[in-house]
């Protein structure tokens, strides 16, 4: 029987694949979003900074910042989920990918529900891919701040999958 791959090697491969996907997008850094990985589950964090405030009187997070955060989470979550099989099957040549870029899904439409005002602190979000076909995918995102059960925004969207190998 084949011995299981050492855990360090598994983690290194997964983290490298994730960083390649995330680091190629300038807008993610601009927005101050980072991703934590546990197994195949990603949690996005939008670190609070004053530029994200929309209503200084409350103060509350800007709806645009919230929408952008959810859309970034959806796209990265979808790209990650669709590449997971290749990352695990070791068929993804990470060394080659590092020097190039990975095509990302494109947004067709995106609908955000603002459930309560965003507080001036870090926000978290997770995406769930509800359907992933060869051409189209449907993704749902939930965002919260202090309390996982009290979402401050949620969104769903449809995406066009990148066509690989022609």
């Amino acid at each position: 029987m084949k011995r299981p791959e050492p855990v360090i090697q598994v983690k290194r491969r997964r983290d490298l694949a994730l960083s390649v996907i995330v680091n190629q997008v300038p807008y993610i850094e601009f927005l101050g979003v980072s991703f934590d990985r546990h197994g195949d589950q990603l949690t996005a964090t939008m670190a609070f900074h004053d530029d994200l405030i929309g209503n200084p009187a409350l103060p509350a997070l800007h709806g645009g910042a919230t929408a952008a955060f959810l859309e970034v989470t959806a796209i990265i979550g979808l790209a990650w989920t669709s590449l997971w099989g290749e990352i695990e099957g070791e068929s993804l040549d990470i060394e080659a990918v590092q020097t190039g870029v990975l095509a990302l899904p494109k947004t067709i439409d995106f609908t955000v529900d603002y459930l309560r005002p965003g507080l001036p602190r870090d926000a978290y979000a997770r995406a769930r891919v509800n359907r992933s076909g060869r051409r189209y995918a449907s993704v749902h995102v939930e965002a919260w701040q202090d309390n996982r059960d009290r979402l401050f925004a949620e969104a769903s969207g449809h995406f066009l999958m990148p066509q690989r190998d022609g």
Partner: peptide
């Protein structure tokens, strides 16, 4: 800084969303 697709250099949809939300508000 707003680029979402490194290949085509197209602006990220999130930035367009933020612009739309700002204009709407």
């Amino acid at each position: 800084l707003l680029i979402g697709d490194p290949v085509t250099k197209v602006i990220h949809g999130g930035a367009v969303s933020a612009l739309m939300d700002t204009a709407g508000g």
